[in-house]
Design a protein around this nucleic acid. Structure first.
Length: 197
DNA sequence: TGCCCGATTAACT
DNA sequence: GTTAATCGGGCAA
């Protein structure tokens, strides 16, 4: 097994719809804690469900910056959610990290999450940030430098696509991507989900 | 200023 | 299946 390579900043400088499925199977670590990305969603600036759809604000400013940086926002006043900014600078598109298969730093993740159930550690965007210790303090950080470490996938994976979760606009767009049959998804994909890779 | 609501989660019935 | 928790963004006034 070859040593996994780091994802470089130019990996993210492409269409969010190319990057998102390729992130499935990659490894996300934050201060050495994390796991394999098994679920993401793509948000394009022309998409009414995207935070950047209505233009630049203080909250979404990082989305309008260069690709390869973290956009972290508060969800429902309670949770934090992590995105990877993609595409050329200014296109304001990003990939939401929705679930990981935990592989590194499990004791710390269990303590932060208050559960020992491995399936509840990182299965949901708010849970990922709680388990990894990511907050607004990390909004705007580069993804190719500590405390982040992103590793390319080392083996082929089966990626499926389906409608995104928890949104009220553009609900039919199949821009949620996942590792087929992973037990760490926040929700299963339909049996009829499109296979994309 | 006031009001509504959301890329969620956990704890209910 | 339903709902409370909790708060900043965005928009009406």
């Amino acid at each position: 097994m070859p040593r996994p390579r780091r994802l470089r900043r130019d990996f993210f400088a492409r269409s969010v719809h190319e990057v998102a499925p390729e992130l499935i199977g990659a490894t996300l670590l934050f201060r050495g804690v994390g796991g394999i990305i098994v679920e993401v969603e793509a948000y394009h600036h022309t998409d009414p469900a995207a935070h950047s759809y209505g233009g630049r604000t203080e909250r979404n400013a990082v989305m309008f910056g260069p690709p390869g940086f973290a956009y972290v926002y508060r969800s429902y006043g309670i949770h934090w959610c992590l995105n990877f900014v993609c595409e050329p600078k200014g296109s304001a598109s990003a990939v939401l990290i929705r679930a990981l298969e935990p592989t590194n730093g499990l004791p710390l993740m269990r303590r932060r999450r208050g559960t020992s159930d491995e399936r509840l550690l990182c299965s949901g965007p708010g849970r990922v940030c709680q388990a990894l210790g990511i907050t607004a303090a990390h909004n705007g950080l580069a993804l190719d430098a500590p405390p982040f470490e992103l590793l390319e996938r080392t083996a082929p994976v089966e990626v499926v696509a389906g409608p995104r979760i928890g949104i009220t606009k553009a609900v039919n767009k199949p821009w949620r991507y996942g590792l087929k049959d992973s037990r760490f998804l926040s929700k299963p994909f339909a049996a009829t989900a499109t296979r994309v890779a």
